[in-house]
Amino acid sequence: MTIRLGGILFGLAITGVLLLWSLLPGALNFAFPTKPDYYAFQEKNIAPEGGFSFDGPLGKWDTQQLQRGYQVYKEVCSACHSLKFVAFRNLQEIGFTEPEVRAEAASWEVPGIDPKDGSAIKRPGIPTDQFPSPYANEVEARAFNNNALPPDLTLITKARKDGVHYVYSLMQGYNEPDPEDVAKSPDFETPPGLYFNEYFYNINIAMPPQLLDGIVTYSDGTEATTEQMAQDITAFLTWAGEPSLIKRKQTGWFVIGFLLFATFLGFMSYKTVWATKKPKKGSPDLV
């Protein structure tokens, strides 16, 4: 009885506090909102026509596309963005042969030491090396980039909401702000050193547009349009973020199929076990 009385009193007290000291000011705030006006950025990302080859439960990597994406990363993105959790040896997974991987690795400069005196030098990469970072540290990265920090790209497609489509959209989202909006408020003007991109969360991004038509020359002859390069780099970064993606989905089909089969057998076994205990009500053979 004391517990119930105490409980009722405590409950009423908590409710009272909420009502008087939180809810009332909150309700006032709700009734007269003072929300600032933001430029609405494009929350809905776009997807390529027909989707990506790895989309859906039956998706597959398109190794040609991944290799094109690698070329875009190497020739464009890697000037500022690292890919630190991927090793050159991983390139074999996207269709490079072992000698090709060795040659690819050797075309990158990675930090090493001089075997004679131990001083820091740059040496050609070997397959077991990770992709090198373009900057020694965060301070250097910011100093070179107008105080913005180019993020590591390994996990970028997982580290953003709807990341795959986000990367694809951002690559093509460079534009000009609506002149009407700019006329309304000077806040909508793009500040110097920044670029208008409606898929970036605060509209003005520090990265200049990169994938200009023809900035790379694809070795397989594909025409390097902005859209094509955006698709290819997105595919490559999706692979870099989750190399096990396709293997995972394929394993999943097998595991779920097996589990459903086992569940079916288990259900039949369960029905048989309970047969005498659960016939229709009023049936004479109940025990």
């Binding site: 089969f261 086992a262 057998l265 288990g266 039949m268 076994s269 048989t272």
Partner: peptide, 17 residues
């Protein structure tokens, strides 16, 4: 016999899993 069969099948499938 039918019942035994289904129990054996269910338990051995679970075992394989």
């Amino acid at each position: 016999r039918r019942r035994d069969w289904i129990h054996i099948a269910a338990v051995s499938t679970a075992g394989v899993g």
